[in-house]
């Protein structure tokens, strides 16, 4: 499972980093999404799907 992230769309709400902290972080400067690992490691798929569902701006997809 590959992750696509669009930092122009991201509003830095942090739902991704809160939901799947091993996969998502936020940049220091802008607070926008940083994908730490892709493809998604085994066992993290469900969390990542939930993060995508939770993201308020539609900035991340798998």
């Amino acid at each position: 499972m590959e992750i696509k992230a669009d930092t122009d769309v991201c509003i830095g709400a942090g739902m991704c980093a809160l939901t799947a902290p091993e996969v998502f972080d936020q940049s220091e400067e802008e607070g926008t999404v940083v994908v730490l690992v892709s493809p998604v490691p085994e066992g993290q798929e469900a969390l990542v799907r939930r993060a995508v569902q939770q993201c308020p701006s539609g900035a991340i997809s798998v």
Binding site: G12, G14, L18, E28
Partner: peptide, 12 residues
């Protein structure tokens, strides 16, 4: 404005 501020309110 939002982009100016989000960096200050990250989870970390």
């Amino acid at each position: 404005f939002r982009k100016l501020l989000t960096g200050q309110f990250t989870v970390r």
